[in-house]
């Protein structure tokens, strides 16, 4: 049942990023909203829970995007496993660090995309427009990451309680 909640959250974030926000805010460059989700699963959820969610999100984004296939898969897997390994020796699991980690994730994704764009163009792609985009994305990440953290935290804990209560009730009745 948890995975249904995770899937719905993924879908909502994708729709928010691809349909609602471009329609409402027009040309404002919002960062990839699935990055906070991937990082949240990396830091606060088990591998068994996180990996399917990350794979599903990545495949969904790769299929929707016009970017080279597999670029989101690469980004999300690296982010997921990278932060998962990092918090074992650096204490990253504090809510106040979450925005900074999301910013690091956004910068990492932009570097991957920049490398892919440069590779396909056959030369280093550089423009002030891309710098501006990255700057806006970082600002948006700093502003929205705490809200997304709270949303994920409350929602997934509520889902945990709901499904654990149901399973214990079913256990008693069985």
């Amino acid at each position: 049942m948890h995975y249904i909640v995770y899937f719905i959250v993924c879908l909502l974030l994708v729709v928010l990023k691809t349909t609602i926000i471009p329609g409402v805010l027009g040309g404002l460059w919002l960062y990839d909203l699935l990055i906070p989700l991937v990082i949240y699963f990396s830091l606060y959820r088990s591998l068994a829970e996180g990996l399917p969610v990350v794979l599903l999100s990545a495949i969904m984004m790769d299929m929707i995007s016009g970017a080279p296939a597999g670029i989101y898969l690469t980004t999300y897997i690296w982010l997921f496993l990278g932060f998962r390994q990092t918090w074992r020796f650096l204490d990253l699991r504090h809510s106040y660090l979450f925005p900074a980690i999301v910013v690091a994730g956004v910068v990492f994704q932009q570097l991957i995309f920049w490398a892919a764009a440069s590779t396909s163009a056959g030369q280093l792609v550089f423009s002030y427009e891309s710098i501006r985009i990255v700057f806006f994305q970082i600002v948006w990440a700093v502003v929205s990451a705490p809200l997304l953290y709270l949303l994920f935290h409350k929602l997934f804990i509520a889902a945990d309680r709901l499904f654990s209560d149901n399973s214990s009730e079913n256990g008693h009745s069985g």
Partner: peptide
């Protein structure tokens, strides 16, 4: 057009 490219580096629509 029902959706737009999620990344700023590429340009596509659904």
């Amino acid at each position: 057009v029902v959706g737009r490219e999620p990344s700023a580096w590429y340009q596509s629509v659904i």
